[in-house]
């Protein structure tokens, strides 16, 4: 699998979220993603970037890469922070659970929107979400 990092967005404020989303949209459109998939991607990027804003103490970074596997292109989103980490991952992935009075559909929702999804988190060290959407 080939991976090319296209852009790294530092997410601290809510305005940075819009910036990350804009880049994601541009990438997906230039790869000629179907519109439905463009919307899925930008919504997922929005969720992940918002999480960095609201949960990680000093924000974090969103890295957007184009990937290629056996001739199929895709976009990989990595959202990473060195914030407090997630105490209970299984709970965080459950629908309707939120520690900040949110809807609790952010992480499980992102997983449903994207084709591949992985999450790593360690208390006191940070959280990293990797999500991929393919152009198909």
């Amino acid at each position: 699998m080939n991976r090319t990092l296209v852009i790294e967005c530092r997410i601290v404020r809510e305005l940075d979220v819009a910036e990350a989303r804009r880049h994601a949209k541009q990438m997906a459109e230039s790869l000629r993603f179907k519109t439905v998939r463009v919307y899925r991607l930008i919504t997922a990027v929005s969720e992940l970037a918002c999480n960095l804003c609201f949960h990680a103490s000093d924000g974090g970074v969103v890295r957007l890469s184009t990937i290629d596997m056996d001739g199929t292109s895709g976009i990989e989103v990595v959202a990473e922070d060195d914030g407090p980490g997630i105490a209970d991952l299984a709970l965080a992935m459950r629908d309707g659970y939120s520690t900040i009075g949110g809807l609790g559909s952010g992480l499980p929702g992102t997983q449903r929107l994207m084709d591949d999804f992985a999450i790593w988190s360690e208390r006191g060290r940070g959280t990293r979400v990797t999500a991929v959407i393919w152009n198909r």
């Binding site: 919504t43 929005s46 969720e47 918002c50 609201f54 949110g102 809807l103 559909s105 952010g106």
Partner: peptide, 13 residues
């Protein structure tokens, strides 16, 4: 709006 994520949804609710 071309994105309604869970934060916007919560806000509207």
């Amino acid at each position: 709006l071309d994105v309604v994520d869970s934060y916007i949804a919560r806000l509207l609710n």
